[in-house]
Structures are given as C-alpha cells and as structure tokens.
Write a protein that binds this DNA or RNA. Sequence first.
DNA 1: TAATCTTTGCAATCGAGTTGCGTTCCAAGA
DNA 2: TCTTGGAACGCAACTCGATTGCAAAGATTA
Lengths: 136, 136
Amino acid sequence: MQIVDEILKIKNVKNTAVRTVVLHHLLNQEKAQSLKDIENALVNTDRSSIFRTLKTFEDNKVIHSIEDGSGMTKYAVCAEGCNCEPKDLHYHFYCNNCNKTFCLFDVPLQNIKLPKNFKIQQANMVIKGLCNNCNE
Amino acid sequence: MQIVDEILKIKNVKNTAVRTVVLHHLLNQEKAQSLKDIENALVNTDRSSIFRTLKTFEDNKVIHSIEDGSGMTKYAVCAEGCNCEPKDLHYHFYCNNCNKTFCLFDVPLQNIKLPKNFKIQQANMVIKGLCNNCNE
DNA sequence: TAATCTTTGCAATCGAGTTGCGTTCCAAGA
DNA sequence: TCTTGGAACGCAACTCGATTGCAAAGATTA
Ligand SMILES: [Mn+2]
Ligand SMILES: [Mn+2]
Ligand SMILES: [Zn+2]
Ligand SMILES: [Zn+2]
C-alpha cells in the first residue's frame, strides 16, 4: 500500500479510497486493464468513479492508455520516472489468442525517421500476434 | 474509374455501385477516412452499406484499417502489391492539430526484436504529433 | 462551525459500430 | 426469355464502451 501512496504523492494526485483501490489493482496485473476489467475486479466500486479516476491518473502520468484495437481502451501503470514523453514510448503487444495486452518495456523503440517537418509527440504502437504462452 | 475496376478485379471483389463509389472516394483522399467521413461525403449512400463494403474491402485486402485513438476506425487503400502481411506494415501518423491520419509508406518499419517466443502477425503503429502543415 | 471545493454513486445519454430483415439486384440455369 | 437463388442494399433498431448531469457525501480551509 505504501507504494500506492508513494506513486500518488510523486505524481501529485490526492489519495482517495477509489484511487487507492484502482491503482493497487493496476499494480498487480500482468496485462493492461480495460475499464470493464477493473469494474469486474472491484465489484463494489462505481464504474464512473473508476472512469474518472483513470482520467485523473492519465492526466497526471500515473498510467498511460493503450488502444489495442479490441474496442476497449487499456490502461497500464507508467514505469518509474516515466513522463509520457517520446523518450518514454514503448511497444505494446496484443496477443491474438489470449487477448492479453502488455507493455514491452524491454524492447527498444527503433529510431523513426519521419518525413521532413513532422514532429512526434506521442505514439500508440501495438504489435499483434502470439505471446510466448500462446505461440505453438 | 478503370483503376477502381482494376483493383476490385485483382482482389477478387465483385464490382457494385456502392463498392465503386466507396473505393473511388477512398482513392481520392489524402487522409485515411472514417465511416463517418465517407458517410458525409457520399450523402445518398447508406451507412450500413458503406460499413459492409468496408468490411468486404478489408477482408479482401483492398483497404486496411487504422486505430488512431480518435475513437473512429480509419481506412486507407492498400498499396499496390500489399497483402496485409508483416512485410507490408507501415507507420501511420496522426496529427494532433489538424486531426488527419495518413499512411507513412516511405518510413521503413525496421525489424523489431521481440522477446523470446513472441510472434508478430500484424501491427497498428500510430505516431502522433504535428504534420508538416501544422508544425510551427 | 460554516462556506467551499472535490469526489463519489447512480442514472441517463452519446455515438460508433453492428445486426435483422424485407426489398432489390444480378447472374446462372431452364 | 423467364425463373430462381444468392448477394447486395436500405432502413430501422440495437449493442455496448464511453461519457456526463446531478445530487449526496466527504474533505479542506477560513
Ligand atoms: Mn505501456
Ligand atoms: Mn496505412
Ligand atoms: Zn497469448
Ligand atoms: Zn496537421
């Protein structure tokens, strides 16, 4: 629990009951979570409260969102020191078999040579295929 | 118009009135189109017909879809010879200012070194930032 | 304490995407 | 040419994830 408090403090987000339980849940997942996932896990917490909590977290760089094409936005806790800037970008992997989505923090993002005068600000990089548990 | 016929023939898609007008429209856009975009442009064509046409086109590799995080799936005509396989992957660029999304056919997607036993099948790579028209 | 601001819970709404179904179109076979 | 079955189409209804309005509850400050 002190990790939750610590993160919220670092990111200047006031600690509340809902925020604590949502962040605690997110920290204990191996895959990125959708609003529905969180709703199902935290049965007595209201959906809109979770929704607004996720917005607050995202605005304050506690978490980042991933559009994996499943129709539901997924959320994952930012790595330590992450500021959601281009340097913090990383790939995400969506498994076509088990439908899990995760951050590939260890796969370096290749240097992208954009056309002249284009400027990168963020990115949503999703690789789809089979994860190590589902391959073969 | 003969380009439309030619593409549909190559991809083994029967030519119909709706398909012709949708593909013709897509071929003349600089930015990827959402269902709504197409609906607005082709005022007397039914939405569900356009929708099913897009599905047919995508199934037959006439077009590919892009999840750019705007909340609406975008569609763009595949490049010649594209088979929507990993080798045909390319980045997409979403401009945060003018909200246009386009294919970066000229930016090569390098070989991504995935963790052990992961297999890539498709990808949805969206770079967000400012396009050449909107930068500064 | 009182005033004020923030967070929460519930219900309603929004909107992109999707589907059911009857009609129209088209092409193959008689 | 006429018949007929399947494909495509148009319209309306529906699904479901996301979002919002609003009043109650909780926290903060003077
Ligand atoms: Mn991530
Ligand atoms: Mn493209
Ligand atoms: Zn898997
Ligand atoms: Zn732009």
